[in-house]
Write a protein that binds this DNA or RNA. Structure first.
Lengths: 153, 153
DNA sequence: CGCGAGTGCTAGCAGTTGCAAGCGCTCTGC
DNA sequence: GCAGAGCGCTTGCAACTGCTAGCACTCGCG
């Protein structure tokens, strides 16, 4: 019995460790895959929102259209420079793409509120107006799950 | 006398033109070199400020030391991910390195603009709307020239 | 002196990035 | 029907990125 228990325990432990390692790897792969596929899907969604073909965006961004296609499908991982060019073509900020690509950390939600409140060039009334609009926008986004909002986090 | 003056004038002019061209080329090279060599030189200067050897930084950053050496000497251009790792090893913000590498623009004068652009809970359209209103408010405040009197608006 | 530890760099290589050439498809006009 | 324009994608390739193995050098110690 004791020798049976002794032999089963190491096996169980090994199995659990392997399971946990597998889980971590799977989890890490999921996170990595999410970041890579996320930026491509986001670029495509922004492009479709702008009602622009892949070739048109490739041209205005100064990127080859096959490469842009590969990026959108998650087959390639673009450099920051390419993301910058794509952002220019989409007329959005490069920072937005960097955040989704995991290059740049996202800002906590309160940063906007804090920044507005601390801005010395605004009157108190203007601050309230801006923050009201900001709150409204975010409420809308929570309810409607807009495609441009990554909800997978 | 007159013939001496005539011969000295053209020579002086040619020399000045050559000098100006050389100055422009030198200036352009300096600007380009500044971005590429700038990030490497900056990393080296930060490393020396921290009194850390190249190998120590490479280890804490999780980067190979030959590659870090090449980066510092401007022979290679690191990706944003590598810059992120180096920033971690140097205990400085990745953004500081991104700015010097030309990946990220310098902070806008307004913290509000920065925060809004980086906010992932807003769509790109909403960001533009908010920033347009923000710009309008600030323009109004500039015209009325009453920065210290918020209640008059 | 020799040795070990540490230094920064060279050279070659595997994998990745971004491109050009080209494909098959759809739609429109003649 | 055909030709042309546009669409998104496949494939192969050159250049680049980041690494490993190893080198020459300096310094301190016995």
């Amino acid at each position: 019995m004791n020798s049976d228990d002794t032999q089963e325990r190491p096996t169980e432990r090994v199995g659990q460790v392997v399971e946990q390692v597998g889980h971590v790897v799977e989890h890490a792969g999921h996170a990595v895959g999410q970041t890579v596929e996320g930026i491509g899907a986001y670029i495509r969604s922004q492009r479709e929102l702008a009602d622009v073909s892949l070739r048109q965006l490739a041209r205005t961004a100064g990127v080859s259209n096959p490469y842009l296609s590969q990026i959108e499908r998650g087959l390639r991982k673009p450099s920051a420079e390419i993301l910058q060019q794509i952002a220019k073509g989409l007329r959005i900020s490069a920072e937005a793409l960097y955040v989704r690509a995991g290059i740049l950390d996202e800002r906590p939600a309160s940063v906007v509120t804090d920044a507005v409140l601390a801005d010395p060039t605004l009157t108190e009334r203007q601050k309230q107006v801006l923050l009201d609009i900001y709150s409204t926008f975010r409420r809308e986004n929570d309810q409607s799950v807009v495609p441009g909002t990554p909800d997978k986090e």
